[in-house]
Write a protein that binds this DNA or RNA. Structure first.
Length: 296
DNA sequence: AATGCAAACAACCGCATGCTC
DNA sequence: TGAGCATGCGGTTGTTTGCAT
């Protein structure tokens, strides 16, 4: 990744109202700038970003320094592909909170809000586009809930099983109506504090220092379009719910646009959004799996 | 090998919020 | 209480990278 910050002599010199009278550098950071910022934070700790420039001679705004530190230089930043577990968690948390990226990021150790936001925009919204759906539409939500997420769970379980008998499970049937911990075949680890009432603090595991090189974990991207071969407009078989009735008999993808904004998945009050799984334990279980599978 | 395009990622910008005086 | 400043957040844009032709 260092290549991304090399050869940056072209960084523009512009005036900036944040720091009047100074020439402010913009654009990619150089190794030297990174080093200066790291040294500053090592000595002074995080915060007081506007004083960084004064103390170090960096010709960057406080905002820029903060962003660079949080998104790139911080030692616990986890680099590399978003894993399947993380994808699943992002989908779940986004269904709860919408575009609350920083809040979502709190539940993904080592991932930044910027990274999650980029993931959402480049991957998830791409899927909606390919399906000719609005990302806010009920159809797309259902596609995620009944196609994408089950597929992710199956892949997670398959990869975990292939790596260890620890995660053996008897069933292959995903049940969208059941909590994750009742259907994945994964064994909850009670030591990781499933909390029926939710945590007082975001659940942050110890810093994960993995990089893109630890590719043994599930890092294969998964999307909606590889979950079925049907062209847009065809129906998709959807599973039955527990009482035997069809939850959703099919997804008429081409009608998605008719439903745009109809249920305010993003736009409405995010805290009132109906979650994919209602109980807190499901989410904590997923968080736990995120850690446990990484450790297998 | 060169070119064009799309995807992915890094960084910036404007606004909101919180803190201090 | 309100002004000024610092920081945080989410949206957007610019740049780089990788792939197809």
């Amino acid at each position: 990744m260092d290549a991304e910050v090399r050869g940056c002599g072209s960084a523009k010199q512009v005036s900036n109202s944040d720091q009047k009278g100074m020439d402010i550098r913009r654009g990619p950071w150089t190794d030297e700038e990174d080093s200066m910022l790291k040294n500053y934070v090592t000595i002074n700790g995080e915060g007081r970003w506007n004083s960084v420039a004064r103390c170090t001679g960096l010709k960057r705004t406080g905002k820029s320094c903060r962003l660079r530190w949080l998104n790139y230089l911080r030692p616990d930043v986890k680099r590399g592909n978003i894993t399947l577990q993380e994808q699943l968690l992002i989908l779940e948390l986004h269904s709860r909170w919408g575009n609350r990226w920083s809040k979502i990021a709190q539940y993904l150790p080592g991932r930044t809000d910027n990274e999650i936001k980029n993931y959402w925009r480049t991957r998830v919204q791409k899927q909606a586009k390919q399906l000719k759906c609005d990302v806010n539409s009920k159809q797309f939500r259902d596609a995620m809930r009944y196609v994408w997420m089950p597929r992710l769970i199956e892949r997670i379980r398959a990869m975990a099983t292939s790596k260890s008998q620890y995660l053996d499970g008897p069933t292959n049937t995903y049940r969208p109506d059941l909590p994750l911990n009742n259907q994945t075949g994964l064994i909850p680890n009670q030591s990781h504090a499933p909390m029926s009432s939710g945590p007082a603090e975001p659940y942050l595991r110890p810093a994960i220092s993995s990089t893109s090189s630890d590719s043994s974990e599930a890092q294969v991207s998964s999307d909606l379009t590889d979950c079925y071969d049907l062209p847009c407009g065809n129906y998709i078989e959807i599973s039955q719910n527990e009482s035997g009735g069809l939850i959703q008999q099919g997804l008429d993808i081409q009608t998605c646009n008719d439903d745009q904004h109809s249920n305010g998945w993003f736009g409405g009050g995010v805290d009132t959004l109906d979650s994919l799984w209602d109980d807190e334990e499901s989410m904590w279980f997923l968080l736990q799996q995120l850690g446990d599978v990484n450790e297998v």
